[in-house]
Computed example of a mutant assay.
Amino acid sequence: MDGVWYRFFKYALFRPGVRLLMHPELVDERNIPATGPAVLASNHLDAGDTFTLPALMRRRLIWPAKKELFEGKGLRMRIVARFLRAVGMVPLDRSGGRASVDAMGPVEAELAAGNLIGIFPEGTRTPDGRLYRGHTGVARLALENGVPVVPVGMVNTRLRRGPLGLPTMKGARIVIGAPLDYTPWRGQADSVRVLRWVTDDVMAHIQQLSGQEYVNVYASRVKYGNLKGKDLTGHLRARADEGLEAPPTDAELAARDAGSAERSGAGESHD
Rank of each mutant, 00 (worst) to 15 (best):
residue 141 L to Y: 02
residue 242 E to K: 13
residue 140 R to S: 05
residue 205 H to P: 15
residue 135 H to M: 11
residue 41 A to E: 03
residue 174 I to N: 04
residue 137 G to D: 04
residue 52 T to V: 13
residue 65 A to M: 06
residue 54 P to A: 06
residue 35 T to P: 13
residue 134 G to T: 05
residue 266 A to I: 05
residue 74 G to Q: 04
residue 205 H to I: 04
residue 1 M to R: 14
residue 263 R to I: 01
residue 188 Q to E: 11
residue 239 R to E: 00
residue 157 T to Q: 07
residue 262 E to C: 05
residue 152 V to P: 00
residue 180 L to Q: 11
residue 242 E to D: 08
residue 145 N to F: 10
residue 238 A to D: 02
residue 58 R to Q: 09
residue 11 Y to S: 12
residue 119 I to V: 10
residue 156 N to K: 15
residue 126 T to M: 02
residue 212 Q to R: 14
residue 160 R to G: 07
residue 269 S to F: 03
residue 11 Y to K: 11
residue 34 A to M: 10
residue 196 R to K: 12
residue 129 G to V: 01
residue 62 I to E: 03
residue 206 I to W: 03
residue 90 V to R: 09
residue 215 V to M: 13
residue 237 R to H: 04
residue 104 M to Q: 14
residue 21 L to T: 07
residue 270 H to I: 15
residue 155 V to F: 04
residue 47 A to T: 09
residue 140 R to K: 05
residue 136 T to F: 12
residue 71 E to I: 02
residue 138 V to M: 06
residue 88 G to M: 00
residue 266 A to Q: 07
residue 74 G to N: 06
residue 238 A to F: 13
residue 232 L to N: 12
residue 214 Y to D: 00
residue 109 A to K: 14
residue 73 K to D: 12
residue 168 T to K: 13
residue 187 G to Y: 07
residue 226 N to I: 14
residue 12 A to Q: 14
residue 118 G to I: 11
residue 54 P to I: 06
residue 62 I to R: 11
residue 218 Y to C: 06
residue 66 K to Q: 12
residue 136 T to P: 00
residue 155 V to P: 12
residue 262 E to N: 09
residue 45 L to V: 00
residue 122 E to K: 07
residue 149 V to C: 08
